[in-house]
């Protein structure tokens, strides 16, 4: 069980790295390497999509192979992340819409917020059930 979990975590790390690299490649490449070539950009985006799907499938396997407490911890962390992202995202959007704030949020802000919320929830829940 422990060996399988280690294997899955390694696979997840590799797929996540591949996904991040293809994000970087697509963004950097489109402006500095193959400027204006739509076909190469499309191929890079498809590669990124493929790596993203691989990452999701491995993560799904990892969760399905986890035991009942690990699943509960994951579920709570994902629930908190989803809920907070929705609520905070809409609050910021409303603040922007009503001109109460004068900065525009990017998708990267949302992704960073989701990542940090998920990480904090996982740490909190692991400490809670330790």
């Amino acid at each position: 069980m422990k060996e399988l979990k280690k294997k899955r975590l390694k696979q997840l790390a590799l797929w996540t790295m591949a996904w991040l690299l293809t994000v970087m490649l697509t963004k950097y490449g489109a402006t500095h390497m193959w400027e204006g070539n739509t076909l190469i950009s499309l191929v890079a985006i498809l590669l990124n999509l493929g790596a993203g799907l691989g990452m999701i499938l491995i993560n799904r396997k990892l969760v399905n192979e986890s035991d009942e407490l690990e699943k509960k911890i994951q579920l709570e962390a994902m629930g908190i992340t989803l809920g907070l992202t929705l609520i905070v995202g809409l609050t910021i959007s409303l603040l922007d819409y009503t001109h109460l704030i004068d900065f525009h949020t990017e998708i990267s802000t949302l992704i960073t917020f989701m990542g940090l919320t998920y990480l904090a929830s996982m740490i909190f829940n692991n400490v809670k059930y330790r």
Partner: peptide, 16 residues
């Protein structure tokens, strides 16, 4: 049992 040590500990401490 086929679970993690953390699970056994959480059950013993009646947290889960």
């Amino acid at each position: 049992i086929g679970v993690s040590r953390q699970t056994i500990n959480a059950i013993e401490k009646e947290k889960f």
